[in-house]
Design a binder for these strands. Structure first.
Lengths: 162, 162
DNA sequence: CTGCAATTCTTGACACATTCAAGAAAAGGG
DNA sequence: CCCTTTTCTTGAATGTGTCAAGAATTGCAG
């Protein structure tokens, strides 16, 4: 048994996290939180696999419900870069942004450009009451930069486009 | 009948637009360009309806092909706010951004915050070669701000969420 | 103007993420 | 410990977007 229980044991914090958001504590929800903690920017399928990998059987519908509930409660943030399916990450409070690789689709967190909360102000929002500015940086990840075309040498790339 | 024939007659410019991009000039492509010109930020279904509304029959597959071809050629820009289906707009060169209403889903163009091309520089892209910064402002459009909850009084709101 | 090769469109089926619906199973307050 | 509410399970449906094969069209060369 390893000394650091960070991988297999659901953190007790998650339970408080749920209660703090007035959500019932259920095994699927804890499992989803745990899955998102170990694989950030995971799509629903990845979450489902991760949850099923170590815990009891969970219906895919439950995963969808959990993700929605957690998103509505603000515990989880949903992102969906153009051409990708919905992805989720634990909401860390800081509103950071994302860099998406055009080739392999991998997503990396990027610190907010300005550091502040709404982070950006539209020059002329034409009457829009803007409460959030979401930024996606498109480009090439370090791995894909060094590989003219083919891939599969890279240690990590996720699904990317469909 | 208005004097400006901007509505029903496909502009001759579109043909040159296609040729300039080394694309063959076909009726479906002209129709798609025309549709996008009169309804910006349209999703595929809207484009399909618009195209079929006035022109010959076109398969939905052709619309998808056209949109892909036009997007690849850079004539059309594809956007997909979280929770929405893919939407398309004529690529105008300036890289403006978009404000999306959380309630009705309507999309409005917003001038680029900085005015310049990549428009934004990630504070620490962690090795990413960023070539574009896409910004989406989330908030409430003018109409939805003035309506506590219900809608249907607003003259224009698009599909929004699914 | 005519014919050919390449591209593009049509038709139909398919794949997949996401949602809907109804009943069973839990959660948590009294 | 019981009851009500919420949540999970099961199974099917919706709808966007893709794949594939053949027919039609485009644009160029002759």
């Amino acid at each position: 048994m390893p000394t650091t229980p960070t991988t297999d044991v659901p953190h007790v914090d998650d339970e408080q996290l749920l209660r703090g958001a007035h959500l019932r504590v259920t095994r699927p929800r804890l499992a989803v939180l745990h899955a998102l903690r170990e694989s950030p920017h995971a799509d629903t399928g990845t979450v489902l696999d991760a949850v099923r990998g170590r815990h009891t059987t969970v219906s895919h519908q439950a995963v969808y419900d959990c993700l929605h509930a957690l998103t509505d409660a603000g515990l989880v943030r949903r992102i969906q870069p153009t051409g990708s399916v919905a992805r989720y990450e634990l909401s860390v409070g800081d509103n950071h942004h994302h860099a998406v690789c055009r080739v392999c689709g991998s997503i990396t967190d990027v610190a907010c450009a300005t550091g502040r909360a709404p982070c950006l102000h539209a020059s002329d929002p034409q009457g829009f009451a803007v409460d959030e500015a979401e930024v996606i940086y498109w480009g090439l990840c370090p791995n894909c930069q060094n590989q003219p075309d083919s891939d599969s040498t890279a240690p990590h790339h996720e699904k990317g486009r469909r």
